[in-house]
Design a binder for these strands. Structure first.
Length: 528
RNA sequence: GGCCCGUUCGUCUAGGGGUUAGGACGCAUCCCUUUCACGGAUGAAACACGGGUUCGAUUCCCGUACGGGCUACCA
């Protein structure tokens, strides 16, 4: 693997192109670049996953860059949330905020001066210009004409360094008049993009507006920051959501303007994740609407409306979450459904990413989780169950949890189900299935049941198969059918007809507890 | 409105000029099991529509419809 060492970009002269190596000889470098405006949406996790898998597949580098250039939308804690979410899903960046790396800083608010320098450079090169129009003035224009755009047609009648005299511009700059820097889009150009997922996409520059590159507060917009950073960080492939496709033409113009087109990254625009029902892309509000998590981790916002449950808290295993997400919009062909992270990385290719939006299928997500729980090691499950048991004040010793996990793993969907559906392994029966008791119990059974309790009490070993053998012998001796006694035994131990094999439950519960439950149940049966 | 993207079972998808259009989730039935699950088997279920091109289109091209995204000094 050839590692290209680059000098610190902040010390580099602006006009020098940073990277001259042909793209094909560079090792793959991809970035996940979320904005810390709140909890990371599950779609964002999928974007991170695809970037991660692409990097892994190609022996490349996966970078986390925080795009916090909008000071108004900054949400405290969001950055930490993003990092924690990536860790939970095992999408560990090789470089980035919180992960080191030589091409930082990786937080855009820490790179403000860099963008300003490049923005001015683009003005000098004639591909950008200062604009002094106030936001209010532009709003007024939009109010008058709904389709108003700041472009090659309208800019000649507006207040900017293209229409003002050099002196007037200098005066404004000296006086510190608030201004932005805009991209100067030249008309009559066709901009072709070779998208790795969609093929050729063509835009006409006449349709494009003169995007703001540097805002009046000195911060760059996404468009400028993204190009400057991708270039300085040596990004080879931009894998991002489809919502960015329309602005990619502007991005290409920026690469051209800076003279970086020969090292421009390749683009791959991912299809969106759609709502479970109805139209449109999955949004955070859909979580409450459909009663499903749409975030990897729970998020506690300022208000109840801004607080959301997460996959983790719902009881999803990270591996199942990743597997589910990976197949939402991508499939390698073939008939395999269950993939480990290594297998995903091995099988991954951008060519197999679908073009159309993928509906968020929660039933499928549940199925994956169930499969992963079934396949999980009992001891690993015990570790996951322990905090849940402790939270309820249940016993949580290793061996007991391991045995409980073994009994319940094939009938749960989520981690908390172990202590909720299977609560009777941890605490006495809360409610009995009266309908079933009505069907199975009759007073004539009382002496047999009493004898059963004695019989159980007399057991020397308390292991499932021995117990089963012994009880079957007991029933045979009294001419009782399994159907006469076993359902009642189950009801006594669990209160419900659902659950693990009775003898397994008895063994896990232990003799003392089993006898106690039989006694309690008998009293209940007699009273019922 | 304008620009851009998309459309195979209900859902996620495989496939690709000639296939009984394959798999998975979900659903239904059956088997296993004196519980519930797991597992196994079977079944119902799809190429949006209209024109081309072609001996032949679900597959290629063009329209239409429908869906989606973008259209900020947000990302």
């Amino acid at each position: 693997m050839i590692k290209i060492v680059k000098p610190n970009p902040t010390h580099r002269a602006v006009r020098e192109p940073a990277l001259k190596q042909p793209a094909k000889r560079m090792s793959v470098r991809v970035r996940f670049a979320p904005s810390p405006t709140g909890a990371l949406h599950i779609g964002g996790v999928r974007t991170a996953l695809y970037n991660y898998l692409f990097a892994r597949k190609n022996g490349g580098t996966f970078i986390l860059r925080i795009e916090d250039t909008d000071q108004n939308r900054y949400v405290p804690g969001a950055e930490q949330y993003i990092i924690e979410a990536l860790k939970w899903t095992h999408l560990i960046p090789d470089e980035g905020v919180g992960f080191g790396g030589d091409l930082g800083p990786y937080r855009q608010s820490d790179r403000k001066e860099i963008y300003q320098k490049y923005a001015r450079e683009l003005v000098r090169l004639g591909h950008a210009y200062y604009a002094f129009d106030t936001p209010e003035a532009l709003e007024g224009l939009r109010a008058g004409e709904a389709n108003f755009t700041y472009n090659f047609r309208t800019r000649t009648g507006l207040s900017n360094s293209l229409t003002l005299s050099a002196d007037a511009v200098q005066q404004h700059l000296d006086a510190g008049t608030p201004c932005v820097i805009r991209l100067k889009v030249e008309p009559e150009q066709a901009i072709r993009i070779e998208d790795l997922i969609r093929g050729e996409v063509v835009f006409q520059s006449n349709e494009l507006d003169d995007k703001v590159l540097l805002k009046a507060d000195g911060m760059p917009t996404y468009h400028l920051a993204n190009i400057v950073d991708d270039h300085l960080m040596g990004i080879t492939h931009v894998i991002r959501g489809e919502e960015w496709l329309p602005s990619t033409a502007h991005h290409v113009l920026l690469y051209r303007g800076f003279g970086w087109e020969d090292t421009m990254p390749k683009f791959a625009h991912l299809p969106l994740i759609l709502k479970p029902e109805g139209n449109g892309k999955l949004s955070k509000r859909d979580g409450a609407k459909f009663g499903i998590p749409v975030f990897p981790l729970a998020w506690a916002g300022q208000t109840a409306e801004d607080s959301f449950p997460g996959f983790r808290e719902t009881g999803f295993l990270p591996e199942a979450t990743v597997n589910f997400l990976a197949l939402l919009g991508w499939h390698p062909g073939g008939e395999q459904e269950i993939f480990s992270m290594d297998e995903l990385a091995q099988a991954f290719s951008i060519e197999h990413i679908g073009k159309s939006g993928a509906r968020f299928d929660y039933e499928k997500a549940k199925w994956f989780n169930q499969r992963y729980i079934q396949a999980a090691d009992n001891r690993a499950l015990a570790t996951s169950i322990r905090p849940l048991a402790e939270a309820k004040g249940y016993r949580s010793d290793e061996e007991f949890l391991v045995r409980s996990a073994a009994l319940m793993k094939e009938r749960v969907t989520f981690l908390p189900d172990f202590v909720e559906q299977g609560y009777y392994l941890f605490e006495p029966v809360r409610t009995y299935d009266n309908e079933m008791i009505g069907k199975k119990w009759n007073p004539a059974l009382q002496p047999h049941f009493e004898a059963l309790i004695e019989h159980v009490e007399a057991q020397t070993t308390f292991e499932a198969s021995a117990l089963e053998e012994s009880l079957k012998e007991f029933m045979h001796g009294r001419s009782l059918k399994a159907g006469d006694i076993l359902p009642l035994l189950r009801l006594a131990l669990a209160g419900t007809m659902k659950g693990p094999a009775v003898f397994d439950m008895a063994a896990v519960l232990g003799k003392t507890e089993t006898v106690r439950r039989l006694q309690t149940a008998l009293a209940y049966f007699l009273g019922a």
